[in-house]
Design a protein around this nucleic acid. Structure first.
Lengths: 123, 123
DNA sequence: TGACAATATGCAAGAATTGGAATATAGTAG
DNA sequence: CTACTATATTCCAATTCTTGCATATTGTCA
């Protein structure tokens, strides 16, 4: 079963999993300005180099960032700017208080399969 | 250190973690139409009731959904519609091919702390 | 009240993730 | 070629996540 214009539910979960880490988010935030070298991230994030490199490897495997060598340093940059739509939306949700509006659709009867054939509702 | 209009990097990570699960995403997709009862989700997602209930509990703890009792059934609804911005964006990223444009900002010298004071770059 | 239906919760074993330490790789300067 | 610098990878123990099973809770109906 597919949904959202043919996007299997497994794929977005993978993206969310990649982003579900404070350090990886911090790295992506650093890269908003443009590319940045590893040693710089190391200094700003105050984490050990090997650790930063691990997180970079995860982001790189997810094809969110790419690297470029310049002399002795390696510079990382974001190759999927759309990622910032996700970051900004998540951040907005974090700060906003829980608004409880939402369209509550009332139904006469229970929509469970005992009342209504599943296929009809699953669409 | 804060970023993105005062949003600590830990908060978005928590939201992403909550969404980093295929079944929870599938549940939220079900709730796009409006509220839905648990037994219905059970039938559509083809998972055991206890399992669905566990995932619902996680989404409820994250204050993304809320419940309402109606007779013998309990209906869940989304109370943070902004969540669909995240889902749609993640889905769009999943389907699109990896475009590798991105603004590559070249610099004369290495921006690492040995070349430039960290405070100046961290802004 | 008692039986039942719908949903929630606690527990546990296995799987995956986290982050530290050591080490490997690759490019550079001399 | 050699030493050095920047970055990457591998290994590992502790923690956390996953998900099935059993059971508890809560409301309904007779």
């Amino acid at each position: 079963m597919q949904n959202r214009q043919g996007c299997a539910p497994g794929q977005p979960a993978a993206i969310f999993k990649t982003l579900a880490h404070p350090v990886r988010i911090a790295i992506l935030d650093l890269l908003r300005h443009g590319e940045e070298c590893v040693c710089h991230m190391e200094a700003i994030l105050d984490k050990r180099q090997a650790y930063i490199s691990q997180q970079l490897a995860i982001l790189r495997a997810a094809q969110i960032i790419a690297d470029r060598r310049d002399g002795m340093n390696i510079f990382y940059r974001v190759v999927r700017p759309e990622i910032y739509v996700l970051l900004d939306a998540a951040c907005a949700m974090s700060t906003l208080p829980t608004t409880t509006p939402s369209a509550v659709i009332r139904r006469e009867s229970c929509p469970c399969p005992k009342c209504t054939p599943v296929v009809a509702i699953a669409d």
